[in-house]
Every structure is written in C-alpha cells, then in structure tokens.
C-alpha cells in the first residue's frame, strides 16, 4: 500500500513538473471549448444550453489525448519493468497509475470548468451538478484510458489508436455524465438516476480494468 502510494505520488509529481503536462491539458481543454463556442456562434441561449455537453466533450477529448502518457514514458525508460519485477500486484499498480492520471490530468480540468462555464453562460444552479457529474464520471475515463494505454504499449504514436479503442467503451460515461449534469440543473432529486448509473460505470471500471490492464502490460513486455 505504501509503495502504491509512492507510485501514485511519483506519477503526479512527474506530471506536474515535466514540461507542464497537466497545464497543457487544461490549455487544450480551454481551447476546445473556445473552438466549440466559435463554431456554434455567440448566441448566449444556445451556448448556455449546450454548455454541459461541450464541457464533457472537451474533457473527454483532453483525456483521450493524454492516455498514451499513462504508461508510455515508464515503458520507454524501463521503470515499468522495475514495477513488474517489484512483486506488487500489477493490477494494483495499474490502479495507482490510473488514479495518478485522474489527479494530474482530469482534476485540473474539473477545477477549470467553472471558469469555462462562465464563458459559455452556464446558469448558476448548473455548476454544482456539472462538476459533481465530472468528479464521479471522469475516473472511468482514466481507468479505460490506462487499459488502452497498456494495449498500445509497444507502439509509438499510439494516440489515434487509443482514441479509437476507448471512445466506444466510454459512450456510457458520456451519456450518463451529461444526463446527470442536466438532471441536476433541472433540479431532479439526486440528479436523477443518471448519477447512480454514472457511479456504477466508474465502479465497473474499477472492477474490470485493472486486471485487464495488468494482463496487457505483461503481454506487451515479455
């Protein structure tokens, strides 16, 4: 457990210190939102209506672009081999790496969401539901991202493949995430059933992906 915490801390520290990896994601996230706004037009009503879907889409795209970093650097410099040999359960290592990805890449995006929500004219009562849905739903992105990153481990420039692999698996998270944000904005109790389903999706990811990620790492390193 202590060693897993060490892996987690190391990954988070590395992500924040090396070339602003986490900041780049936030910049990408903000730019995607700006591009959406430019494409849709300055109509305030339309923008505020699509604010939640736009922010969820931008967060998903930013996450997808960062998936290949979850394991690639460690694979290239050999520290992944050290982790495999360390005797820790590899699926728990995978879980630690996915958590580190969430904290270093997706949490900054969620923290940047209120500012971008302001630009899109998100109504005041919709902020909390949107951020709650992102906090509960985006861990699923990191978990499936870690899996895809492990599948594509032996490839260079894998981010396109990773996107193709993860997007279909992530459709439930997007559907339930936006639905929960909208239900919360409408004032449904507990954000309707969508938030529960979203949480179920994340828990399902916790259950299934670490073992699959570990298996993929093993197959790609031997």
């Amino acid at each position: 457990m202590k060693r897993l915490m060490a892996i987690f801390e190391r990954d988070v520290t590395l992500a924040f210190r090396t070339g602003g990896g986490a900041l780049n994601s936030v910049a990408f996230f903000a730019l995607t939102v700006v591009i959406f706004a430019l494409a849709i037009g300055p109509d305030r009503a339309r923008l505020s209506e699509s604010a939640a879907p736009i922010l969820w889409t931008a967060a998903t795209l930013a996450a997808m672009l960062s998936f290949d970093r979850i394991l690639q650097a460690d694979f290239e410099d050999g520290s992944l081999d050290a982790l495999i040999e360390s005797g820790d359960l590899l699926s728990l290592v995978a879980l630690a790496k996915a958590s580190a990805h969430w904290v270093s890449t997706l949490l900054p995006l969620i923290l940047a969401t209120p500012v971008l929500g302001l630009l899109l004219g998100l109504p005041a009562h919709a902020y909390f539901p949107l951020m709650a849905s992102m906090v509960i739903g985006t861990p699923a992105l990191s978990l499936f991202g870690a899996l895809a990153s492990a599948l594509a481990l032996s490839l260079r420039r894998a981010s396109m493949l990773i996107t193709i692999l993860t997007a279909p698996l992530l459709t439930p998270a997007i559907i339930f995430g936006v639905a929960a944000a909208n239900a919360g904005a409408r004032g449904d109790a507990l954000f309707g059933p969508a938030l529960m389903l979203l949480a179920a999706m994340t828990l399902f990811g916790v259950l299934v992906t670490p073992a699959a990620t570990a298996a993929a790492i093993r197959f790609n390193t031997d």
Partner: peptide, 27 residues
C-alpha cells in the same frame, strides 16, 4: 503478442456491450 493483446481488447469490449446497449437505450 497481437493475438493476446487484441484478445483482451475484444473481451473487455464484449462485457461492455450490454452496458453500452443499455446506456444508448436509456439515452
């Protein structure tokens, strides 16, 4: 290697199909 790695992707996709189906129906 491709066979093993693709098999993982296939199986994870397979257990996800009912969830995707449910989410799309619901949506």
């Amino acid at each position: 290697r491709a066979a093993k790695v693709a098999a993982i992707a296939c199986l994870v996709g397979f257990i996800n199909i009912p969830i995707i189906k449910f989410s799309v129906d619901w949506w």
